[in-house]
């Protein structure tokens, strides 16, 4: 029951934030909404009993790829879009503190609801990291190999494109 409720809540959050990411005019805001959507997705994975996939979702997508997006956006656009003069912070000035409290409270609730140690809350099928690894490297070994080959081709290609003329000439002379 609780799990279903949380699932639909997270699903709604993911949908709304993704839509917002598409319609935002400010690219930095769009990235932030996308990060939120990725978070909601990760929590859904966690709910479905795949903690490893959830963690990878956050580490790889929110932690690395979105960071690269932000990097490029910051290089392109220097001034924030909201050029209006901002007023002094009034009651809003305590937002960070409230944010701290809220996130901590939500985390606590989630950890209580899903605490794997307490062995209670939502019964579910559980994919441990070990199961995940076995599945990946036995059943899907071929796919993993193909993808890693593709990635190394991409890496070599990126290296080739990134070479400057001088270094290319030097390398050709050496070989």
């Amino acid at each position: 029951m609780t799990a279903t409720l949380i699932f639909y809540l997270l699903g709604a959050v993911a949908l709304v934030t993704t839509a917002l990411a598409i319609i935002q005019r400010n690219p930095v805001y769009a990235v932030i909404y996308l990060v939120k959507s990725i978070f909601a997705l990760a929590l859904i994975f966690y709910l479905l009993g795949a903690p490893l996939v959830a963690a990878l979702q956050v580490i790889v997508y929110a932690g690395a790829i979105m960071v690269l997006f932000l990097f490029v956006i910051m290089m392109l656009e220097i001034t924030p879009v909201s050029a209006r003069k901002s007023s002094a912070p009034g009651w809003l000035s305590w937002t960070p503190v409230v944010l701290v409290a809220l996130v901590l409270a939500v985390m606590t609730l989630l950890l209580i609801g899903l605490d794997p140690v307490a062995e209670q809350g939502i019964p579910r099928w559980h994919a441990t990291p070990r199961d995940f690894g076995y599945a990946l490297f036995n059943e899907y070994a071929l796919a993993v190999k193909i993808i890693s080959f593709q990635l190394s081709f991409a890496a070599v290609g990126a290296f080739h494109i990134g070479l400057t003329e001088r270094r290319r000439a030097r390398m050709e002379k050496d070989s």
Partner: peptide, 17 residues
Amino acid sequence: DFLPARADKWLFLVAPG
């Protein structure tokens, strides 16, 4: 508690959190 002119209000307030 100072908010610079033309700063992006919400992100500016939330980032330290």
